[in-house]
Amino acid sequence: MSEKYLPLMATIAVFVILFIAGGLLYPNFFSTLVLGNILGDNAFIIIAAIGTTFVIISGGIDLSIGSMIGFVGVVMANLDSAGWHPLASAALMIVFGAGYGTLVGFIIDFCEIQPFIITLAGLFLLRGMCFMINLDAVPIKNPFVLEFSDMGIPLFGGGWLSSSAIVMLVALVVAVIIAHWTEFGSAVYAIGGDAQSAKLMGVPMRKTTLKIYALSGTYSALGGVVYALYTSSGYPLAGSGLELVAIASVVLGGTLLTGGVGFVAGTVFGGMILGLIATLINFNGSLNGAWIMISGGLLLFIFIVMHRFLVGSLKFRAGS
């Protein structure tokens, strides 16, 4: 097996181990119900993280995910008050996400501003726009929201694959196809592997950069839509700090922050590992939020050190 699959295998192994550990600790844990819930509860963040995976594979970063999720929710809630159907406002927000991402990509490529900085400005801008629209939570009252959360596919063993989870899985399939079976997907890997060479090899840099960030914008807007439907409200502080969770999911999923190496599917497991930890800690009533942060950091540390040595050896050979 090629070295490049090792981080992905490690991610899946950690997920399985954690899940089994949970099952041994708590009798009710080991069920499709819990698994379905983890998928459903974390779908929005995993969707956004899938988009971020492309950005990170290309060697960039997107910090505006959390703000985008909050912004989408606030706008959808207000459009709901104005009588829009959630699907219509969702479509509008996804188009907005794509447009926003395209603009970000353009600024990165044309103005040569580092992705970190421009998406940081985007984080402030979108969050600020949330505050300008609303300061309080606004409910989304359209009955479609209830229908959405009632939809789903029953799993064997009493579990339930919620509509959020289904949206996430569809988004995953699309992303995997884009990453591995399109010219654009190869270009993303090429730019992340060596941007200078990619340019000389004729990879259309501007077009690809625009598309990468447009894709990330689309996916984070979709994440926002799912989150808004899932919580049936728009709250201007929603999604604060989620960019970190998304990046952590991508890293735990085996994608190198140096770019060029990574898997979209890994991100789903990375996100689910984080969701699993939160669920485990919630199962134990005495543990609290502080533990979620600390254990998340610890896990991140372990994975990062592991990547460092696994891929360090691969890179060493590549460089020599």
Binding site: E183, V203, G260
Partner: peptide, 18 residues
Amino acid sequence: VNLIPTMSVTKNLTLGRL
């Protein structure tokens, strides 16, 4: 050498006209 070291030989040779 202007190739992408992290990508396979196939991808390197066919990128742009896959």
